[in-house]
């Protein structure tokens, strides 16, 4: 798990997938056409209609497909355009985090952020901090990634 930590840590860019609510931080001019952040090209964003739209299973999918971390960006708590989306998502992320931790997946690999429309500096700052933490814990080991889909075990789901 700690194979990448060391001298070459700076060179390694963790692969990160981020789901961003359409109404949260504006990223139109921060990404290229494939959704990569220009400042951190190994971070790829997917815009969704609301942070609450995200199924926890998709976050697991991203980890399974080889991402080192996933995150969700919603609006500041209390300020969701749809009133509740970010609270609901925060709960689902917490649940999934606990479930993944039982499988020895570090909690850093899954996070819920909240940034309003014009908060891009704070957003980019948090991404940089996230990458730094990921460099410390190293790439996700294949074995630790969840091996099954959440839908197969719905009783556990959110």
């Amino acid at each position: 798990m700690s194979s990448a930590s060391g001298a070459s840590a700076q060179a390694w860019s963790p692969k990160v997938v981020g789901f961003v609510c359409d109404w949260a931080v504006a990223t139109g001019d921060l990404t290229d056409e494939r959704g990569r952040l220009t400042s951190h090209p190994s971070v790829v964003l997917i815009r969704v209609p609301c942070s609450g739209f995200i199924r926890p299973a998709w976050l697991e999918d991203a980890l399974k497909a080889g991402a080192d971390a996933v995150f969700v960006v919603g609006c500041p708590y209390g300020d969701c355009l749809n009133r509740e989306g970010n609270y609901l998502m925060r709960e689902r992320v917490d649940q999934l985090q606990r479930r993944l931790q039982r499988r020895k997946v570090e909690p850093e690999r899954l996070s819920m952020l909240a940034h309003g429309l014009h908060d891009r500096e704070a957003f980019l700052g948090e991404i940089a901090a996230l990458l730094e933490r990921l460099r410390q814990i190293g790439p996700a080991s294949k074995g630790a990634a969840p091996a099954r889909r959440a839908a197969a075990a719905p009783a556990e789901g959110s």
Binding site: C50, G52, F53, R55, G85, L88, R92, A150, P154, S158
Partner: peptide, 11 residues
């Protein structure tokens, strides 16, 4: 059309 129910449904 916010999609929040999509995220809620585990099935």
């Amino acid at each position: 059309q916010c999609g929040i129910c999509i995220g809620a449904c585990p099935f």
